[in-house]
């Protein structure tokens, strides 16, 4: 079955960013800015946290915006990146209104979620989980 990352309850988030660290570490890096998932505050921690991650749209605007067809629509929703085709134009970033795609300044290619669920393994508070696309 095709899976995607689901945000179960952002109110449970404590802002530890262990998911972000895990996402970077999946690629072998220590850091925060290569992560495909992001935790930000809407203006101060007292207002809680916003979890920003690809929601695996059925008809993803980012893929349609890509002039090089580097973003393939995945069966069941979501996208798959072919980095060899990507020219780093950033149209996908513009197209995603939830802000789930950013360009990695070090590679100038988009950072995309691959729906592996590694981040969810390190979420201590049940904010995110990998779930089957219904």
């Amino acid at each position: 079955m095709v899976k995607r990352l689901a945000i179960l309850d952002a109110n449970r988030c404590v802002g530890c960013q262990l998911c972000m660290l895990a996402c970077s570490e999946r690629l072998g890096y220590a850091g925060l800015t290569k992560s495909a998932i992001r935790i930000v505050t809407p203006g101060g921690v007292e207002r809680g946290f916003t979890v920003i991650v690809c929601r695996a749209c059925r008809d993803p605007p980012c893929a349609r915006a890509c002039p090089e067809a580097a973003l393939k629509v995945r069966q069941g929703g979501g996208i798959l990146l072919d980095p060899s085709k990507c020219i780093g134009c950033g149209h996908c970033v513009e197209a995603c209104d939830i802000g789930a795609i950013r360009l990695d300044p070090e590679t100038n290619k988009p950072i995309t979620c691959i729906y592996c669920g590694y981040c969810a393994e390190f979420c201590p508070h049940g904010v995110i989980a990998l779930e089957e696309v219904g």
Binding site: C16, Q17, L32, V45
Partner: peptide, 17 residues
């Protein structure tokens, strides 16, 4: 108690608001 918050890389979230 209205919210609990953590430092980066801490699952404990001892900060009580």
């Amino acid at each position: 108690l209205a919210r609990r918050v953590a430092c980066v890389a801490c699952p404990v979230a001892c900060i009580h608001l």
